[in-house]
């Protein structure tokens, strides 16, 4: 198992280098990818472009630029500087992480509790009104893009522009350390919006998986032997949860994509919003930094999920 984990970590690092290379190359081959041209205004004179390229180090060979970048990232965890604000990308990201972590963790908790809870209840009462209602709602949430859902939530429930002025609206985020209650209330809508889609997927998956499991012979045997129903269900849930855990790793990626949209709609100053502005401004250093962070997040999450998978299902062993 230890060897497996070490191997996964090494692969993770290799993958990060590949992601680095891909983002580096992609943004430099895009026709709009030369920040010097963008920086030179709408009448970009060749001399000015050349000077800006020199100042930003963009006139060096691509391989040199990439090697410098890689060295800085791997040896010093230096992600470079924003072309616009001149601030260190590392500090920009570090500063933006708490809101994104707040959003992501809260949403993940909601979607796990909500998704699994609804899935289990639906599976235990299949074809009931509750089941049909819950699965219908799940379908709606799966189909609804986060951006749209966020707008609907704001127009319905935001205290400034909503029909029912219940929750703080866009731009109301305050850090946890500043005011825990305001932090909590400002994130209620974003949590629900971000969690809705994933919770719906998890609910449907859990329902299907549990219904199948509860039809298994060993469940029937357990019941026949008089095992308490609560324990039977617990056994069934544990057996059904493997596909959920597998999906969890994949959903982390979706979560980050969703966080970008939700942070934009609710104006939460997190990494997603940072990435959004960087894309708009073609601020490559920042884009690369946020992509790298996202990749790292997904890789780590997948390693954790794989280990958790082995823990949950003793039949799974890694060599």
């Amino acid at each position: 198992m230890t060897a497996y984990i070490i191997r996964r970590i090494l692969w993770g690092i290799a993958l990060l280098v590949i992601v680095c290379a891909l983002t580096f190359v992609l943004f430099r081959i895009f026709p709009t990818g030369n920040p010097a041209v963008l920086r030179a205004g709408r009448d970009p004179q060749p001399k000015l472009i050349h000077e800006i390229e020199r100042v930003l180090g963009l006139n060096k060979p691509l391989t040199t630029q990439f090697w410098d970048y890689l060295k800085n990232v791997l040896l010093h965890f230096n992600l470079g500087y924003s072309y616009y604000s001149q601030e260190s990308v590392k500090s920009l990201i570090v500063e933006r992480l708490p809101p994104t972590i707040s959003l992501a963790v809260g949403a993940a908790v909601l979607w796990l509790i909500g998704g699994l809870g609804v899935g289990i209840i639906s599976a235990l009462r299949p074809r009931s009104v509750l089941d049909r209602g819950a699965m219908g709602a799940a379908l709606v949430f799966i189909s609804a893009p986060e951006f749209w859902l966020g707008l609907v939530a704001l127009y319905l429930f935001a205290s400034d522009i909503g029909k029912f002025k219940i929750f703080p609206g866009a731009g109301s985020y305050v850090p946890l350390t500043e005011d825990p209650w305001k932090w909590f209330t400002s994130l209620i809508m974003p949590w629900f919006v971000l969690a809705a889609g994933a919770a719906a997927v998890f609910a449907r998956l859990m329902r299907g998986s549990l219904i199948e499991t509860m039809d298994e012979d060993y469940i029937r045997t357990a019941r026949a032997k008089g095992l308490e129903e609560r324990l039977v269900v617990r056994q069934g849930v544990r057996s059904s949860i493997n596909p959920i855990v597998t999906l969890l790793g994949l959903e982390i990626g979706t979560l980050l994509g969703g966080a970008l949209l939700v942070e934009t709609v609710f104006n939460i100053p997190g990494v997603g919003l940072l990435a959004y502005h960087a894309i708009i401004q073609a601020d490559f250093s920042v884009i690369q930094g946020t992509v790298l962070l996202a990749a790292m997040f997904i890789i780590v999450a997948n390693i954790v999920v794989d280990i958790g998978y082995a823990y949950l299902d003793p039949r799974v062993r890694y060599s």
Partner: peptide
């Protein structure tokens, strides 16, 4: 000056604010 958000939301915040 607060930076960020969706233009349609910002617009409504201003008009109703």
């Amino acid at each position: 000056i607060q930076i960020g958000g969706a233009d349609s939301v910002i617009g409504r915040q201003v008009l109703e604010g």
